[in-house]
Design a protein around this nucleic acid. Sequence first.
DNA 1: GCCGGTCGTCGAAGCGCTTCGACACTCTCA
DNA 2: TGAGAGTGTCGAAGCGCTTCGACGACCGGC
Lengths: 334, 334
Amino acid sequence: MSGRTVTIAQVAKHAGVAVSTVSYVLSGKRTISADTRRRVLDSISALGYHPNAGARALASKRSNVIALVLPLRAGMHVPVLMRFASAVVTAARRFDHDVLLLTADEGTAGIRRVAASALVDALVLMDVELDDRRVPLLRELPEPSVLIGFPAEPAGLTCVDLDFAAAGARCVEHLAERGHEEIALLGAPSVVYERGTGFARRTREGFVEAVEAHGLKGVALPCEETFDEIYETVRDLLHDHPGLSGLVVHNEAAVGHVLAALRQLDRRVPHDVAVVAICPDDVAERASPPLTSVLIPAEEVGREAVRLVMEKLEGRVVPDSTLLAPLLAVRAST
Amino acid sequence: MSGRTVTIAQVAKHAGVAVSTVSYVLSGKRTISADTRRRVLDSISALGYHPNAGARALASKRSNVIALVLPLRAGMHVPVLMRFASAVVTAARRFDHDVLLLTADEGTAGIRRVAASALVDALVLMDVELDDRRVPLLRELPEPSVLIGFPAEPAGLTCVDLDFAAAGARCVEHLAERGHEEIALLGAPSVVYERGTGFARRTREGFVEAVEAHGLKGVALPCEETFDEIYETVRDLLHDHPGLSGLVVHNEAAVGHVLAALRQLDRRVPHDVAVVAICPDDVAERASPPLTSVLIPAEEVGREAVRLVMEKLEGRVVPDSTLLAPLLAVRAST
DNA sequence: GCCGGTCGTCGAAGCGCTTCGACACTCTCA
DNA sequence: TGAGAGTGTCGAAGCGCTTCGACGACCGGC
């Protein structure tokens, strides 16, 4: 409350102690008597003191900020990104860190800049691709980093993601349990497969393997995102595979259109065709009928990424690869 | 390239000048001879120098970081937020600033914290509500701020937004030009109106006034976001208003379901019912048929917000209120 | 009753940068 | 030809914090 910007020196004077004592109260790096601590803390709240971030970063060589690097490309799962982002922010705050948002606009230069200028202590990268330009840079950076997603060559990096192969397999298993014998996967748009985005391929692999393991008939198709294209895809699919009775949809933007197409084609869900989606919970719940789904645990992935990067900051060794187990929620569509 | 973390002193020595000279080359705050400047810049790139952000912030009292404060509530337009966010980041970089991401988790404490600790120089708040807890705090903060959206009492604040009233009116006008005489607005879920979110109400007001001005018949309804609810709403609407031939949809999440419901009810778009949406371009383009729409200019709003906050940082006076004109893109649905 | 240990606190030295005042030059114009 | 007005550069004083070494005060053990 006293004339703009309170410094640690003012707190020290107010409490009748040395500046360093106040610092130690705050950091807990040396023992301080209960009595002194009380007085210091009282002064801090009486004066409304907030340590100056720049000074702290300069003296301690820690900014207490981590970078969150967004992708910025067509076809990315925009709504999911926002949930990752806020999960990361929330998790970072628990470790007393803030989050700097970086887009890919600047390319790798932005990453280099914030790291070299000590603006951030560590990095979390979202939506990593198999062949990601940012990855080589990370290897040579002294700052620790964690990737959400898997590049082609993850050796020496720390990666977190939903276990998409297990998710694909889990959907197949669920449909098999329900007695379906011929099923299909509608995945990402073909451009996403071509770009080599990891999660799309891994889901498909998990799907294909599980289909074989369960002795089912199965087909995996890419899936565009406009209603007309989806309508055709679904129509042809049902036509070519008359025995088909189960559908796995791994494409958030297409889920609604797939259901609309089935309605149009007079197939009732789940009576004629059972549908399992891999998508965020809210999308599955809002659909009609509400979809049995494997949720994409954005919050958990974000939290885990932050936990790992903090461990690395502390100098601890962490596993290269963290795959989060899929969780299937049964709803009205199967 | 030389042993971890290059300082301005090393650059100065390498170039054979004083530290302050290097600083002035970088900031341009004093004239430096072309010759010296060259030498300094060469040394900078030879050594790979990046100024330490903490030291800079400490000495200059400017962190060159702005805070982007997200809302975090049910019913918010998640995908649009992401586009605002990346527009803000991109725009901030043009002013040589970075963006710190803040969620509402911490409430107003987070805003207070980053401002008081000088972590950020200024704030941009997204998705402001009519009655927003964060607003009173902003008034007492010395740091400049800009709001995206309008609170009930915007006096003394700087606000930017799409002119939703004009957008609502623009849609009506377009339908009137096409000869429609009885039209309806399907807006946000009722909870959003109750919360008093500005943009929903303003669109409705613009719609209602324009309907009167053009001597049309019109009705404005809230619109939930599940297919079944939307189906009922649309069915009842068409039943109660047999002459209705135009629909304005201002609800991104509902657009797909509205079209599916019309299909289901055997109404052809645009032949039986013309549809205009207020939504991001990509949603309008992906719909089937592609929708005539007033786009929500996320990029422009973000850019403008950053421009304004930078002006305020420079001490310049800016208008309290900036309304961005709506732009109608005609597509296949009208 | 003296010595070695803790414990709690202090003072001072930076961290890497910006900025202010000073100073040596070089022009210009009376 | 000399005063006055720029130019271009330097040195040093901070900015607010953390951290290191030092140093009393107090403790228990012999």
